[in-house]
Design a protein around this nucleic acid. Sequence first.
RNA 1: GCGCGCUUAGCUCAGUGGUAGAGCGACUGUUUUACACACAGUAGGUCGGGGGUUCGAUCCCCUCAGCGCGCACCA
Length: 994
Amino acid sequence: MPHELDSRYDHKAIEHSIYKKWEESGYFNPDRVVSDEGRVVSKKKSLRRSKLATRNSPLETRPFSIIMPPPNANGSLHLGHAVFVTLQDIMARYHRMKGNKTLWLPGADHAGFETQVVFNKKLEKEGRSWFSMNREELYREIWNFTQANKKLMEQQLRKLGASCDWSREKFTLDPDIVRIVYDTFGRLYKDGLIERDAGLVNWCPKHQTSLSDLEIKDEERADPFYYLRYGPFTIGTARPETKFGDKYVVMHPDDARYKEYKDGEQFHLEWINGPLTATILKDKAVDKDFGSGVMTITPWHDPVDFELAKRRNLDKEQIIDERGRLLSIAGEFEGMKITEARPKIVEKLQSKGLVDKVDEAYRHVVRACYKCGTLIEPQIKSQWFVRMNKQIAKSPAAAQAMAGKKKQRASQSLAEMAVRAVKERKIKFYPEHAKKVFLHWLRNLRDWNISRQIVWGIRIPAWFCASCGEVRVMNPLTANPVRSRAYPAADGTSPGDRGAATSNGTKWLLVRHGETEWNKEERAHGHADPPLNNEGRAYAESLAARLKERHIGIILTSDLSRARETAEIVARATGAELIVSKGLRGRHIGIAQGMHHRERRRLYGDIFQSYEDAPPGGESFKDFEERVWNAFRQHHALYRHKNVAVVTHIETIHAILKRTKNWDMKQMIAHQTEKAGFTEFDILDPCPKCKNDLYEQDPDVFDTWFSSGQWPYATLLAGREKRGSSKLEVRGSNIPPRSSNDFQTFYPTDVLETAGDILFFWVARMVMFGLYRTGEIPFRNVYLHGLVRDKDRQKMSKSKDNVIDPLGVAEEYGTDAVRMALVAGNTAGNDTIVSEDKIRGYRNFATKVWNIARFVLMHKTGSTNYQSPITNYTPKLTATDKKFLVETKKIKTEVGRHIERFEFHLAAEKAYHYIWHTFADKVVEHYKDRWPKEGEKRKQTKRTLERQAAASYTLENILANSLTMLHPFMPFVTEAIYKKLKPEEMLMVKPWRE
RNA sequence: GCGCGCUUAGCUCAGUGGUAGAGCGACUGUUUUACACACAGUAGGUCGGGGGUUCGAUCCCCUCAGCGCGCACCA
């Protein structure tokens, strides 16, 4: 019997195959136009069909687009993701049924720093760390890690019923996305909105990178506050360890207590490590009422002091290094961590009588890395900053280029552009008050540091001339190719480099040879010629692997075995041509040859540090450098258009670096050996300033939000280059070729639906970049959802063990139940409470819907269940039947209106309430009377049969409408039921208004 | 310090200028052929305190209190 239904809805048996049918139908792709019969027809044809044309009135065929916030490809989806999937899917499904050309574009984010931190935790468990890995290794491993997660995540999105267009899926590291990100960087640079500057950055001593102002969290805590005697003054500080170099003492110009002192006046004092000359400054930056009203300044490690020093052009000195240890200025405290040093410094100050008093319970706010909680140590660093408040001189070149027409706009900054768009109500916020928060933030915005000292991300497309430091910004994916060059994703530059060329297209690498027994014994080689040992050969193999992906054409090496053997191993692996050059030999050290380094330093230390003096029987550094440089220059002239690896001796590398970078001996010696062991140059068009062509690329990568901030237009433009989707074609469906103008069709997008906590991180940046590059807002509406909490209002976290795995509960109660639980009671901007009880409640509702359908199908015209003869009777609708029908349509319209107003909870609750408490409780109950009860002997007349036919018709109609209105919320169970009702059709594309 | 919210039934939350709703929970009854993942019913709130506007306020305004969040350079 065709309409036999079990009394329970078995989601497990059905969900997977339903999703598969949806996906294979191709209806997730907006390029498919749906006819009323549910078949796909070509666009031109479909418009000629009058029926379709009627339904798809101009209003309804307008496109509707949502770009999915790309989940981080570093873990599996949690309930927060399930919330966005549900809300966005509701909109997508509703608009698709309404007849809009609906695009929901999925993606994944590489999530730079976050992912590298997550990955590092994994490494730490294995006893490894990112700091002990080279760039390529680390990049490759994280690449594989994210790809695996991404795949998993896509499956999870499917499980949640996401009706997104997989053929347009994007990853933030896709080459076509990266190209656009590079382009934006270049244009911002040209417009003067991105500058490289030595600014004070938030430095995380654990992760060894700078962070933006948004990536730090404030933490209130109690620390001792020390009052120290600084000459005639008393200064207050919570950080005595930064005070070693303080030589300016500042007070407010109006402070009567210090009126006898004059700005610029100098005095001598005894300080932590001895006498010091200090200068008095009068400046309004000082708060008279705080502490003693006098402070000394540490510009290198404090934002206020930095600003003051910058404004008044004062000296700045670094006190604390990147690992959080004191530098040599600290004298006896050098090398100590600040936590360790602080009490000892205070002790010393005390012993010198310099401590006035200590306030032990001083409460203040410290800033910490938002990922690891390590205290942020401000440092001065040369980094790339986006100038948020700098006026763009003319209308932005970027927007003109993209819009293809001139946009006349007044001079304004990135922040002002965004403020204006919001104030002009071009972008609406849900909840509305988010607008105030948004504007408040924009108006207090500071420059944004986008440099990150990590590997995982899009490498900044900026090069520095190795000789004079001149900056060159270019898009390596579009710059004029001299020759094509393939960069694999794992080479540490960026996957965007694949198959692309830079303006000159070649790389020169200076790499060190493998180890010999002499190296192991720490004996100096000179021109002695021991072979590689086992470790040396193993190193050569790993070097070969590292170089293999770089398409090395030529390997230059010296004729000495250790270099030459290393080079041969690399040549075998890479297929590169080997060129042996005696000129590249290391320094000839004469009598010191074979000596232990310590011995050599003891006997000849001065000579080896000197430029002109030669050791007995050996070369002076000057002669050595000349010889190496000549050889290097000759080869460089011959092979500069090829990718070259120079496999040679560490002194040779040092000599080349010294010449290239114009170092003196001191600078060269200070250069760290391990860094020189793998030096990478790009050979570009000669530097306009100094005519040299060796460049080094900035090793930093972009803050991840710099790329995701461009997501709306990047995804839509990137899609332009690709036609069709091989992925879906493989599955045997007939997806038409990708529309070539996604950007024109779908931009600006309709809704940006995302978590409220990334309003600044993401939403604000998208608005600014969108306006800057396209001249238009990226989305018309911003809907923000809150955090998911458990029934005790607790934030879900692994440590609290209250995490609900969305896929787990979906497995147990059905995806539909989870989706309903996530949308019911979920208002814009507020946190959502989800408990298993709530999910169970909506599972019960799914069963309810199922059983309504069971009843309707049992009483359906033609059903064999009751051996109903009503098939032959024309339904004669009674007034009640009509009333019921009208009511359903009214509710359906209201549900739709709520969705359009972003009142998803009201829509869901309305549909729920109607279906359960009207349709089931009243309508179905009402119709039971039209059929004879069991055992009842009621005479079936023409009239009763007509009334039964009317009941059947009405019930079926109400069921279809109920399924329609519920489908956006509970897509699986509704589609499953609809399949029983109309086996040939698909509810997902059933017109909403039918 | 500045800004933004929240305070409604035991719990979690909706909601409206005309003296309140849902889910879960509690209690009573019911195995009636759509559904016990159900049905019928019951109890439970002076809508944080105070003041104002209004014919009328839980809803609008002011104020106080408690809670939460965001921003902020007080060394």
